[in-house]
Protein backbone atom coordinates (compact mmCIF):
# COMPACT_ATOMS: atom_id res chain seq x y z
CA UNK A 1 0.00 0.00 0.00
CA UNK A 2 2.80 2.41 0.88
CA UNK A 3 4.95 1.65 -2.13
CA UNK A 4 6.45 5.10 -2.42
CA UNK A 5 7.90 5.25 1.10
CA UNK A 6 11.61 4.60 1.46
CA UNK A 7 14.23 4.86 4.19
CA UNK A 8 15.28 8.37 3.11
CA UNK A 9 11.79 9.65 3.83
CA UNK A 10 11.81 7.97 7.23
CA UNK A 11 15.23 9.42 7.97
CA UNK A 12 13.97 12.92 7.19
CA UNK A 13 11.02 12.39 9.53
CA UNK A 14 13.42 11.23 12.27
CA UNK A 15 15.67 14.26 11.76
CA UNK A 16 12.64 16.55 11.89
CA UNK A 17 11.43 14.94 15.13
CA UNK A 18 14.88 15.08 16.72
CA UNK A 19 15.29 18.75 15.79
CA UNK A 20 11.90 19.69 17.16
CA UNK A 21 12.41 17.75 20.41
CA UNK A 22 15.55 19.79 21.04
CA UNK A 23 13.69 23.08 20.86
CA UNK A 24 12.83 23.36 24.60
CA UNK A 25 16.59 23.42 25.25
CA UNK A 26 17.18 26.13 22.66
CA UNK A 27 14.34 28.65 22.89
CA UNK A 28 12.69 30.71 25.62
CA UNK A 29 9.44 29.69 27.30
CA UNK A 30 7.55 32.53 25.58
CA UNK A 31 8.67 31.33 22.19
CA UNK A 32 7.75 27.79 23.17
CA UNK A 33 4.19 28.94 23.91
CA UNK A 34 4.01 30.50 20.45
CA UNK A 35 5.24 27.21 19.00
CA UNK A 36 2.49 25.36 20.86
CA UNK A 37 -0.13 27.58 19.21
CA UNK A 38 1.59 27.05 15.84
CA UNK A 39 1.49 23.28 16.35
CA UNK A 40 -2.24 23.26 17.07
CA UNK A 41 -2.81 25.50 14.06
CA UNK A 42 -0.71 23.06 12.01
CA UNK A 43 -3.00 20.20 13.09
CA UNK A 44 -6.07 22.18 12.04
CA UNK A 45 -4.44 23.23 8.75
CA UNK A 46 -3.43 19.63 7.92
CA UNK A 47 -6.94 18.49 8.75
CA UNK A 48 -8.43 21.13 6.43
CA UNK A 49 -5.91 20.33 3.73
CA UNK A 50 -6.64 16.59 3.77
CA UNK A 51 -10.21 17.33 2.75
CA UNK A 52 -10.01 20.58 0.84
CA UNK A 53 -6.42 20.74 -0.40
CA UNK A 54 -6.52 17.21 -1.75
CA UNK A 55 -10.04 16.77 -3.05
CA UNK A 56 -10.67 20.40 -4.01
CA UNK A 57 -13.83 20.57 -1.88
CA UNK A 58 -13.18 23.87 -0.10
CA UNK A 59 -14.61 23.73 3.40
CA UNK A 60 -15.46 27.02 5.10
CA UNK A 61 -16.85 25.16 8.06
CA UNK A 62 -13.79 23.65 9.64
CA UNK A 63 -14.24 25.43 12.97
CA UNK A 64 -17.56 23.55 13.08
CA UNK A 65 -15.63 20.27 13.24
CA UNK A 66 -13.05 21.59 15.70
CA UNK A 67 -15.92 22.95 17.78
CA UNK A 68 -17.70 19.59 18.03
CA UNK A 69 -14.53 18.00 19.41
CA UNK A 70 -13.74 20.87 21.73
CA UNK A 71 -17.24 21.29 23.13
CA UNK A 72 -17.84 17.55 23.54
CA UNK A 73 -14.79 16.99 25.71
CA UNK A 74 -15.28 20.29 27.55
CA UNK A 75 -18.89 19.48 28.47
CA UNK A 76 -18.17 15.84 29.33
CA UNK A 77 -15.18 16.58 31.52
CA UNK A 78 -16.31 19.86 33.07
CA UNK A 79 -20.04 19.29 33.48
CA UNK A 80 -20.16 15.53 34.02
CA UNK A 81 -16.74 14.74 35.45
CA UNK A 82 -15.88 12.26 32.71
CA UNK A 83 -12.13 11.59 32.79
CA UNK A 84 -10.27 13.13 29.85
CA UNK A 85 -8.90 9.70 28.87
CA UNK A 86 -12.49 8.91 27.94
CA UNK A 87 -13.86 12.31 27.00
CA UNK A 88 -11.26 12.96 24.29
CA UNK A 89 -11.83 9.70 22.35
CA UNK A 90 -15.59 10.27 22.69
CA UNK A 91 -15.04 13.81 21.35
CA UNK A 92 -13.17 12.47 18.31
CA UNK A 93 -15.86 9.85 17.61
CA UNK A 94 -18.61 12.45 18.07
CA UNK A 95 -16.89 14.79 15.63
CA UNK A 96 -16.70 12.08 12.98
CA UNK A 97 -20.31 10.93 13.45
CA UNK A 98 -21.70 14.45 13.82
CA UNK A 99 -19.81 15.80 10.86
CA UNK A 100 -20.90 12.93 8.61
CA UNK A 101 -24.54 13.51 9.57
CA UNK A 102 -24.30 17.22 8.85
CA UNK A 103 -21.83 17.37 5.99
CA UNK A 104 -22.55 14.22 4.00
CA UNK A 105 -25.43 15.79 2.06
CA UNK A 106 -23.10 18.70 1.28
CA UNK A 107 -20.61 16.37 -0.42
CA UNK A 108 -23.12 15.88 -3.23
CA UNK A 109 -22.70 19.49 -4.28
CA UNK A 110 -19.55 21.04 -5.69
CA UNK A 111 -17.59 24.26 -5.88
CA UNK A 112 -18.69 27.45 -4.18
CA UNK A 113 -21.99 25.85 -3.11
CA UNK A 114 -20.12 23.35 -0.96
CA UNK A 115 -18.08 26.17 0.58
CA UNK A 116 -21.21 28.20 1.35
CA UNK A 117 -23.06 25.26 2.89
CA UNK A 118 -20.13 24.49 5.18
CA UNK A 119 -19.88 28.17 6.13
CA UNK A 120 -23.55 28.06 7.06
CA UNK A 121 -22.86 25.09 9.36
CA UNK A 122 -20.22 27.10 11.21
CA UNK A 123 -22.63 29.97 11.75
CA UNK A 124 -25.34 27.52 12.79
CA UNK A 125 -23.03 26.00 15.38
CA UNK A 126 -22.19 29.47 16.68
CA UNK A 127 -25.85 30.23 17.24
CA UNK A 128 -26.71 26.80 18.63
CA UNK A 129 -24.01 26.84 21.31
CA UNK A 130 -25.52 30.05 22.64
CA UNK A 131 -29.18 29.09 22.43
CA UNK A 132 -29.42 25.33 22.97
CA UNK A 133 -28.73 24.28 26.54
CA UNK A 134 -26.55 27.22 27.61
CA UNK A 135 -26.41 25.52 31.01
CA UNK A 136 -24.16 22.93 29.29
CA UNK A 137 -22.32 25.02 26.70
CA UNK A 138 -21.93 28.10 28.86
CA UNK A 139 -23.80 30.18 26.27
CA UNK A 140 -22.06 33.30 24.98
CA UNK A 141 -19.49 33.26 27.77
CA UNK A 142 -18.46 29.68 27.12
CA UNK A 143 -16.78 27.50 29.73
CA UNK A 144 -13.63 28.23 31.70
CA UNK A 145 -11.78 26.18 34.28
CA UNK A 146 -11.64 23.12 32.03
CA UNK A 147 -9.06 20.57 33.13
CA UNK A 148 -5.69 21.10 31.47
CA UNK A 149 -3.54 18.12 30.57
CA UNK A 150 -0.13 19.65 31.10
CA UNK A 151 1.59 22.16 33.33
CA UNK A 152 4.14 24.57 31.91
CA UNK A 153 5.28 25.44 28.41
CA UNK A 154 7.70 22.53 28.02
CA UNK A 155 5.14 19.81 28.73
CA UNK A 156 2.57 21.62 26.61
CA UNK A 157 5.09 21.74 23.80
CA UNK A 158 5.87 18.03 23.97
CA UNK A 159 2.21 17.07 23.97
CA UNK A 160 1.29 19.34 21.06
CA UNK A 161 4.38 18.24 19.15
CA UNK A 162 3.55 14.55 19.52
CA UNK A 163 0.00 15.25 18.33
CA UNK A 164 1.21 17.27 15.36
CA UNK A 165 3.94 14.76 14.47
CA UNK A 166 1.71 11.70 14.65
CA UNK A 167 -1.01 13.51 12.65
CA UNK A 168 1.49 14.61 10.02
CA UNK A 169 3.10 11.18 9.73
CA UNK A 170 -0.19 9.30 9.42
CA UNK A 171 -1.57 11.77 6.87
CA UNK A 172 1.70 11.58 4.97
CA UNK A 173 1.49 7.77 4.83
CA UNK A 174 -2.08 8.04 3.59
CA UNK A 175 -1.11 10.61 0.98
CA UNK A 176 1.66 8.33 -0.32
CA UNK A 177 -0.76 5.43 -0.76
CA UNK A 178 -2.88 4.82 -3.86
CA UNK A 179 -5.80 6.09 -1.83
CA UNK A 180 -4.01 9.43 -1.45
CA UNK A 181 -3.32 9.49 -5.17
CA UNK A 182 -7.00 8.92 -5.90
CA UNK A 183 -8.00 11.73 -3.52
CA UNK A 184 -5.64 14.13 -5.27
CA UNK A 185 -7.08 13.00 -8.62
CA UNK A 186 -10.56 14.07 -7.46
CA UNK A 187 -9.43 17.69 -7.21
CA UNK A 188 -8.17 17.54 -10.81
CA UNK A 189 -11.06 15.75 -12.48
CA UNK A 190 -13.74 14.04 -10.43
CA UNK A 191 -15.61 12.65 -13.45
CA UNK A 192 -12.45 11.02 -14.76
CA UNK A 193 -11.89 9.38 -11.36
CA UNK A 194 -15.40 7.95 -11.54
CA UNK A 195 -14.74 6.87 -15.12
CA UNK A 196 -11.71 4.94 -13.87
CA UNK A 197 -13.96 2.80 -11.72
CA UNK A 198 -13.60 4.50 -8.36
CA UNK A 199 -16.54 5.32 -6.12
CA UNK A 200 -15.88 9.02 -5.58
CA UNK A 201 -18.56 9.36 -2.89
CA UNK A 202 -16.81 6.75 -0.75
CA UNK A 203 -13.44 8.39 -1.37
CA UNK A 204 -14.72 11.81 -0.37
CA UNK A 205 -16.42 10.34 2.67
CA UNK A 206 -13.14 8.73 3.71
CA UNK A 207 -11.27 12.04 3.30
CA UNK A 208 -14.01 13.76 5.21
CA UNK A 209 -13.94 11.29 8.13
CA UNK A 210 -10.15 11.49 8.41
CA UNK A 211 -10.27 15.27 8.27
CA UNK A 212 -13.03 15.37 10.89
CA UNK A 213 -11.20 12.94 13.19
CA UNK A 214 -8.05 15.07 13.07
CA UNK A 215 -10.03 18.30 13.59
CA UNK A 216 -11.95 16.76 16.49
CA UNK A 217 -8.79 15.44 18.12
CA UNK A 218 -7.00 18.78 17.65
CA UNK A 219 -9.99 20.68 19.02
CA UNK A 220 -10.28 18.38 22.04
CA UNK A 221 -6.62 18.61 23.01
CA UNK A 222 -6.56 22.34 22.28
CA UNK A 223 -9.39 23.06 24.70
CA UNK A 224 -7.59 21.03 27.36
CA UNK A 225 -4.50 23.14 26.71
CA UNK A 226 -6.32 26.48 26.87
CA UNK A 227 -8.55 25.49 29.79
CA UNK A 228 -11.45 27.48 28.37
CA UNK A 229 -13.74 27.66 25.37
CA UNK A 230 -15.97 30.41 23.99
CA UNK A 231 -18.11 30.34 20.84
CA UNK A 232 -16.93 33.68 19.46
CA UNK A 233 -13.27 32.68 19.58
CA UNK A 234 -13.94 29.33 17.93
CA UNK A 235 -16.64 29.90 15.32
CA UNK A 236 -14.94 32.97 14.01
CA UNK A 237 -14.22 33.97 10.43
CA UNK A 238 -10.68 35.09 11.36
CA UNK A 239 -9.95 31.69 12.89
CA UNK A 240 -11.36 29.98 9.80
CA UNK A 241 -9.24 32.03 7.42
CA UNK A 242 -6.12 31.59 9.53
CA UNK A 243 -6.51 27.81 9.09
CA UNK A 244 -7.11 28.08 5.36
CA UNK A 245 -4.35 30.63 4.74
CA UNK A 246 -1.89 28.53 6.78
CA UNK A 247 -2.55 25.56 4.49
CA UNK A 248 -2.48 27.60 1.27
CA UNK A 249 0.46 29.82 2.14
CA UNK A 250 2.53 26.78 3.08
CA UNK A 251 1.46 24.65 0.13
CA UNK A 252 -1.86 22.87 -0.24
CA UNK A 253 -1.99 19.14 -0.91
CA UNK A 254 1.29 18.58 0.91
CA UNK A 255 2.00 17.73 4.54
CA UNK A 256 4.93 19.98 5.26
CA UNK A 257 3.17 22.94 3.60
CA UNK A 258 0.34 23.39 6.13
CA UNK A 259 2.84 22.88 8.99
CA UNK A 260 5.23 25.47 7.57
CA UNK A 261 2.35 27.84 6.85
CA UNK A 262 1.04 27.48 10.42
CA UNK A 263 4.45 28.32 11.91
CA UNK A 264 4.96 31.20 9.48
CA UNK A 265 1.57 32.75 10.22
CA UNK A 266 1.69 32.27 13.98
CA UNK A 267 5.14 33.80 14.31
CA UNK A 268 4.30 36.59 11.87
CA UNK A 269 1.25 37.56 13.91
CA UNK A 270 3.20 37.33 17.17
CA UNK A 271 6.11 39.44 15.92
CA UNK A 272 3.68 42.05 14.62
CA UNK A 273 1.83 42.22 17.94
CA UNK A 274 4.11 44.83 19.65
CA UNK A 275 3.80 47.14 16.66
CA UNK A 276 0.19 46.46 15.71
CA UNK A 277 -1.67 45.12 18.73
CA UNK A 278 -5.11 45.25 17.09
CA UNK A 279 -6.72 43.66 14.07
CA UNK A 280 -4.47 45.73 11.75
CA UNK A 281 -2.03 42.85 11.97
CA UNK A 282 -4.35 40.88 9.74
CA UNK A 283 -3.93 43.52 7.05
CA UNK A 284 -0.18 42.88 7.02
CA UNK A 285 -0.56 39.12 6.98
CA UNK A 286 -3.19 39.37 4.26
CA UNK A 287 -0.79 41.47 2.19
CA UNK A 288 2.05 39.00 2.67
CA UNK A 289 -0.23 36.09 1.78
CA UNK A 290 -1.29 37.94 -1.36
CA UNK A 291 2.31 38.54 -2.39
CA UNK A 292 3.21 34.88 -1.88
CA UNK A 293 0.22 33.76 -3.95
CA UNK A 294 1.09 36.18 -6.74
CA UNK A 295 4.67 34.98 -6.79
CA UNK A 296 4.02 31.28 -6.22
CA UNK A 297 0.42 29.97 -5.96
CA UNK A 298 1.72 26.63 -4.71
CA UNK A 299 3.04 28.32 -1.55
CA UNK A 300 6.18 28.37 0.55
CA UNK A 301 6.80 24.64 0.06
CA UNK A 302 7.18 25.14 -3.69
CA UNK A 303 9.38 28.23 -3.24
CA UNK A 304 11.76 26.31 -0.95
CA UNK A 305 11.64 23.23 -3.22
CA UNK A 306 12.66 25.29 -6.24
CA UNK A 307 15.49 26.97 -4.36
CA UNK A 308 16.65 23.52 -3.20
CA UNK A 309 16.59 22.15 -6.76
CA UNK A 310 18.53 25.16 -8.06
CA UNK A 311 21.13 24.74 -5.32
Amino acid sequence: MFATVNWRHLLLWAVFAAGMLLLPELVKKGTLRTIIMAQYLAIFAMSWDFLSGRTGYISFGHPFLIGIGAYTTAILSYRFGVPVELSIPIAVATTVVGSVLFFLPALRIRGSYFALVTLAFMELMYQLTQVIRPDLTGGTRGISGIETLTRGAVNGFYLSFVLMFVTAFVLWLLSRSRLGTALSAISMNEDAVAGSGLNTTKLKLFAFCVSAAVAGMGGAFWVHYLGSIAPRALFDINFLFTIIVAALIGGASTIIGPMAGAFFLTFLLEYLRPFLPGAERYLIYGGIALLIYMYQPKGLFEIVSRLWRRA
Binding site: R178, T181, A182, S184, A185, M188, N189, D191, A192, V193, G195, S196, G197, L198
Partner: peptide, 25 residues
Protein backbone atom coordinates in the same frame (compact mmCIF):
# COMPACT_ATOMS: atom_id res chain seq x y z
CA UNK B 1 -12.81 0.41 -19.68
CA UNK B 2 -13.21 4.04 -20.67
CA UNK B 3 -10.54 6.22 -22.26
CA UNK B 4 -12.10 9.67 -22.43
CA UNK B 5 -10.68 12.52 -24.49
CA UNK B 6 -7.14 13.17 -23.31
CA UNK B 7 -8.17 16.47 -21.71
CA UNK B 8 -9.64 14.29 -18.94
CA UNK B 9 -6.31 13.20 -17.49
CA UNK B 10 -5.03 14.24 -14.06
CA UNK B 11 -2.84 16.99 -15.41
CA UNK B 12 -0.57 17.56 -12.43
CA UNK B 13 0.09 13.92 -11.70
CA UNK B 14 2.84 11.74 -13.06
CA UNK B 15 2.18 9.27 -15.87
CA UNK B 16 2.57 6.36 -13.43
CA UNK B 17 0.08 7.81 -10.94
CA UNK B 18 -2.40 8.49 -13.74
CA UNK B 19 -2.18 4.83 -14.66
CA UNK B 20 -2.46 3.69 -11.05
CA UNK B 21 -5.71 5.60 -10.53
CA UNK B 22 -7.13 3.18 -13.08
CA UNK B 23 -5.87 0.19 -11.10
CA UNK B 24 -8.46 0.16 -8.33
CA UNK B 25 -10.87 -2.26 -9.95
Amino acid sequence: GYAPERANLFAHMSVRNNLLVGAYT
